[in-house]
Amino acid sequence: DDWEIHFNNITIRLHGVSEEQIEELKELIKNGAHEEELRKWAEEVNR
Rank of each mutant, 00 (worst) to 15 (best):
N9T: 09
D2G: 13
Q21W: 07
E44D: 08
R39D: 09
E37G: 03
G32A: 02
N46I: 15
E43D: 13
L38P: 00
H6G: 03
N31V: 05
I12Y: 00
E35A: 10
E43W: 01
R13A: 06
W3V: 11
I12G: 03
A33S: 04
E35I: 14
N46P: 04
E27V: 10
L25C: 02
E36S: 11
D1E: 15
E4S: 05
K30T: 06
G16K: 15
R13M: 07
A42V: 14
L38D: 00
I29T: 01
R47M: 15
N9H: 09
T11S: 04
E44G: 08
I10Y: 00
D2L: 09
H15D: 08
L28Q: 01
W41P: 02
I22F: 09
E35C: 07
W3H: 07
L38Y: 02
K26H: 08
I5R: 04
A33P: 02
R13D: 10
K26W: 14
A33W: 04
W3L: 10
E24I: 11
R13S: 11
E43T: 02
L38H: 00
E43V: 01
E4F: 09
E4L: 11
E35W: 13
E4C: 08
V17M: 11
T11Y: 04
K30I: 09
I12A: 06
H34S: 15
N31L: 07
R13N: 13
D1W: 15
E35M: 07
E24H: 12
I10F: 02
N31F: 04
E35N: 05
S18G: 07
E20C: 07
D2W: 15
R13Y: 06
E43H: 01
H34N: 15
I10D: 04
H6D: 05
K30A: 12
Q21M: 08
G16C: 11
S18K: 06
E27P: 00
K40E: 09
E43N: 02
R13G: 08
K26M: 15
K30L: 09
T11D: 07
E44L: 07
E37V: 13
I22N: 01
G32E: 03
E23V: 09
L28G: 00
V17S: 03
V45D: 02
N8Q: 12
F7H: 05
G32K: 03
V45P: 00
R39C: 15
N31H: 08
V45M: 12
I22Q: 04
I22E: 02
G32N: 05
I5V: 07
N31A: 14
K26T: 07
V17D: 00
V17G: 02
W3K: 03
K26P: 00
H15V: 12
E36A: 11
L28T: 00
L25F: 13
L28F: 02
V17Y: 06
N31I: 05
E27C: 10
L14D: 01
K40P: 00
T11N: 08
Q21Y: 10
N46A: 14
T11P: 00
A42C: 10
N31Q: 14
I12C: 05
H6K: 11
L14I: 10
E20Q: 15
W41Q: 04
S18N: 10
W3I: 14
W3D: 03
E37F: 10
G16Q: 12
W3A: 03
E23Y: 08
E43M: 01
L14T: 03
N46Y: 05
I29K: 00
E37A: 14
N8E: 11
L38W: 01
A42P: 03
E24V: 11
R39P: 04
L28E: 00
L25W: 03
E19L: 13
G32F: 03
E27L: 12
E27Q: 12
R47L: 15
G16V: 07
H34G: 15
A42N: 02
E27F: 07
L14C: 09
N31D: 06
E24R: 09
W41C: 07
I22H: 02
K30W: 05
Q21T: 11
E44R: 07
L38F: 03
I22C: 07
K30H: 08
